[in-house]
Amino acid sequence: MPNTTDVRIDPVTNTLIREGVESVINPFDAYAIEEAVRLKERLGGKVTVLTMGPPQAETALKEALSLGCDEAVLLSDRKFAGSDTWATSYTLAAAIRKLGGFDAILCGKQASDGDTAQVGPGISTHLDIPQVTYVKKIAEISAAGALVERMTEEGYDSVETPLPCLFTVVKEINTPRLPSLKGLMKAKSAKITRWTADDLGAEPEALGLDGSPTRVINIFTPEPRKGGELLKGATADVAGELVELLKDIVM
């Protein structure tokens, strides 16, 4: 995904400035990568990182490799263009099937550009495996299953699941490490597998715009928020003034 913290709007044309915006790891996915690498370090196994995107998404995959992932796969094809969350999750699920067996799939809880939180659950549905979303802690995990804590509005649920299972994770689950020098060297020379639609053996009508039930029909820039009013002066005066202003707001 594009680095959204860098998104700026051109004040003249009201469009996004994408020039020079690099492809980065979605901040939420960084927690998923870290958790996967930690599971590998504890239990053994292999971490494969997978993304769908334009060729420049390789940079993000290399970053993932430098953080301890073993293999990286990029799904890149013009036929994937225009995918909504239905088609995206279908495509990723097809690639996961092609990769073969797995014990757990970890996803960030959502992307910070689209914010939908729909792709993870979509993948688990296409693969027909159980899921636990918003996981903030993997308390126990073994071949038999896992006990995890799933964040709720009020606190958390403790949930038991068999494996394979798909987890979407929240920030609280860990603190991602920085890439090591060794990792960076490894990532630099690592080969990234690139698969196209043909490689996946997927139904062409389920890919890209064809496979997407939703259509964007209009894009517009929201009215910029009106600037606030800055009250200046001695704290006591300003506080009084503010209280008067707040009185007008019906709570």
Partner: peptide, 23 residues
């Protein structure tokens, strides 16, 4: 668009082959 809602309808939409728009 709650914790439950997002988890649930994302799955339902895939099963029904329906369009789903978040938030």
């Amino acid at each position: 668009a709650t914790v439950i809602g997002r988890s649930l309808v994302s799955r339902v939409a895939v099963r029904l082959n329906a369009g789903l728009t978040a938030d």
